[in-house]
């Protein structure tokens, strides 16, 4: 339970939060950050009680818990920026799939532990470099503050995922094959992380977020080093086949995640839980 901390009460001054001209893009961008955490957290939590070994059950639940915490921070700020009275819960529970802004990568079914850990690794490596930039350089103090908090946990997630990718890749013939299959499956979804659009351009322009393309080199270095140690072959293709999640065009999977996640809020509107 130590993992459940209450958010700090003092909120730094941040003029971006009330900047009307920036509002639509800033809101979109914050939803992307929050939705990635929420949907990956959801997928990770599906393992609860079903892990391959007790220590993994605990670690997976812990990762999911961290990600839900990040969701509360990002979507909470998104609601503030939007200024229409929606809080993190309203955004999480009362938007339909086409309003969700997560990457396709994080909504794919959890698969086996190979898919789960490879997905987490590919995403964490991106998430880590993104949060590092945000914590160090974002001109929005609120964004920098959330990023710094999330970064502590995400660097641990990345360490753990990297370690498992190495050990399973270089484990038995079967674990190696499963990890390579997972990598080949997920690779085609990894490019979307680096494809910017007008929302990203507006965030870069304002100094809130980095040019995504600029993170690609660091991500590739991290990924290449780990895959090499794991004796896994980095796919040759560019990895841009599947994209659109950031703009609300999802796979068929997201609708089912939301049907499950939002069930109580939808079935009993206005109740308090």
């Amino acid at each position: 339970m130590a993992a459940l901390e209450t958010a700090a009460t003092s909120v730094p001054e941040d003029s971006f939060v009330s900047d009307a001209s920036l509002r639509p893009a800033f809101f979109e961008w914050l939803c992307r950050m929050g939705d990635n955490a929420l949907i990956l957290g959801h997928r990770t939590s599906e393992w609860c009680g079903h892990g391959p070994v007790l220590e993994e059950d605990i670690a997976l639940a812990n990762t999911a818990l961290d990600l839900i915490g990040h969701t509360q921070m990002w979507l909470g700020l998104a609601g503030e920026v939007e200024g229409e009275g929606r809080d993190a819960d309203k955004l999480a529970y009362l938007r339909d799939a086409m309003k969700f802004r997560n990457l396709l990568l994080v909504e794919l079914p959890k698969g086996d532990m190979a898919v789960t850990m490879m997905r987490e690794f590919l995403f964490d490596a991106f998430h880590y470099h993104l949060l590092t930039w945000l914590a160090d350089n974002s001109k929005s103090p609120r964004v920098a503050e959330i990023a710094a908090k999330a970064l502590k946990e995400v660097s641990y997630h990345l360490d753990r995922a990297s370690d498992l990718v190495v050990r399973l890749g270089d484990g038995t013939e079967e674990s190696h094959r499963r990890m390579q299959d997972a990598l080949d499956l997920l690779w085609a979804y990894s490019g979307e992380m680096f494809v910017g659009d007008e929302v990203d351009a507006a965030m870069t322009q304002a100094g809130i977020a980095p040019d995504l393309e600029s993170l690609r080199g660091e991500w590739e270095t991290t990924v290449r080093d780990v895959l090499k140690e794991a004796t896994l072959a980095m796919p040759a293709e560019a990895g841009f086949v599947h994209k659109g999640g950031k703009q609300g065009r999802h796979t068929e999977h997201l609708g089912f995640i939301l049907a499950e996640m939002q069930f109580l809020q939808r079935a009993y509107p206005g109740a308090s839980w």
Binding site: R167, L168, G171, T172, S175
Partner: peptide
């Protein structure tokens, strides 16, 4: 389902 996972980690160790 987790047998391959545990075997993989053991083989590595």
């Amino acid at each position: 389902d987790g047998a391959w996972f545990r075997d993989g980690l053991n083989a590595y160790a």
